[in-house]
């Protein structure tokens, strides 16, 4: 019953939005090249299914590659920052600067340096997606309570044991929060990378559809991007539930006692 009502609300919202969409197009006589009808978009998706799937596959590949790069580099960078005060002082200002700086502006430069292959796309995606992982991992690694660290010290734990048995597992809830933000950013990164220079992918399709005023295709591509984003987000969430079941249980217990 609870599951059903949990699904009912978002479904009702979607139905409401589609109805509103129809109403606006019909009432205000919006021309097709500004806002096509939802039915037309649906029809386009069905017609161009294999075509859309092909380009989605390419964008998904770039997204996952850039995201993997962000995880593989982001988590060790965070560990290094927490382990070494010198590294933290030397690198943190640069990391923050690299984020206040519009990464989109770097994209053309990366294309000039690395060409039009897969490599520059992974790099741009990485630049957009790795920061949330670094920040939330650093926060998580520093979140261990004082008594927990004193316990480890009293057992004469080595630095490696300190990270492996205490700090890293305790940081996992924060790391997963960072992964969820990062995976959503990675989709944005891949689209930006394709805007700058690509011959395939959903970002490339967006540019082409835009040039042709093919608004129906624009919407079809947006739908594909939305699906990719949502699926990746929930994939990370499922991975979180599987790898740190204790966290969900504690969260539930906490809300139960405070309620």
């Amino acid at each position: 019953m609870q599951r059903l009502s949990g699904l009912a609300y978002p479904l009702a919202a979607v139905v409401g939005a589609v109805v509103l969409w129809y109403a606006i197009v019909i009432v205000f006589h919006v021309p097709k090249y500004i806002l096509p009808l939802p039915g037309a978009v649906y029809q386009r998706i069905v017609e161009d299914w294999t075509f859309l799937m092909y380009h989605s596959g390419i964008t998904l590949y770039e997204t996952l590659g850039g995201f993997a790069l962000s995880v593989i580099l982001g988590i060790p960078i965070a560990i290094a920052l927490v382990a070494s005060r010198t590294l933290d002082r030397a690198l943190m200002p640069w990391l923050i600067l690299s984020q206040t700086f519009p990464k989109v502006a770097l994209a053309p430069l990366i294309v000039v340096w690395f060409g039009l292959g897969l490599m520059p796309k992974l790099l741009i995606t990485f630049l957009v997606a790795f920061f949330p992982i670094v920040i939330s991992t650093v926060v998580g690694l520093r979140s261990a309570e004082r008594e927990m660290l004193e316990l480890a010290e009293s057992m004469r734990a080595t630095r490696l044991q300190m990270f492996w048995h205490f700090r890293i597992p305790l940081a996992l809830p924060n790391i997963f929060a960072g992964l969820k933000v990062s995976v959503a950013f990675a989709v944005v990164g891949a689209v930006i990378a394709e805007w700058v220079g690509a011959s395939a992918g959903l970002g490339y399709l967006l540019m082409r559809a835009n040039a042709n005023l093919d608004t129906t295709l624009l919407f079809a591509v947006l739908a594909a991007l939305m699906v990719i984003g949502v699926v990746l987000y929930y994939a990370v969430e499922i991975l979180e539930r599987v790898s740190i079941p204790w966290h969900a249980v504690i969260r539930l217990a906490d809300t139960a006692t405070t309620a």
Binding site: E147, M148, P169
Partner: peptide
């Protein structure tokens, strides 16, 4: 050592 909180590892 026994601390004020049990500091057990939840996993």
């Amino acid at each position: 050592i026994v601390f004020q909180t049990p500091v057990l590892l939840p996993w």
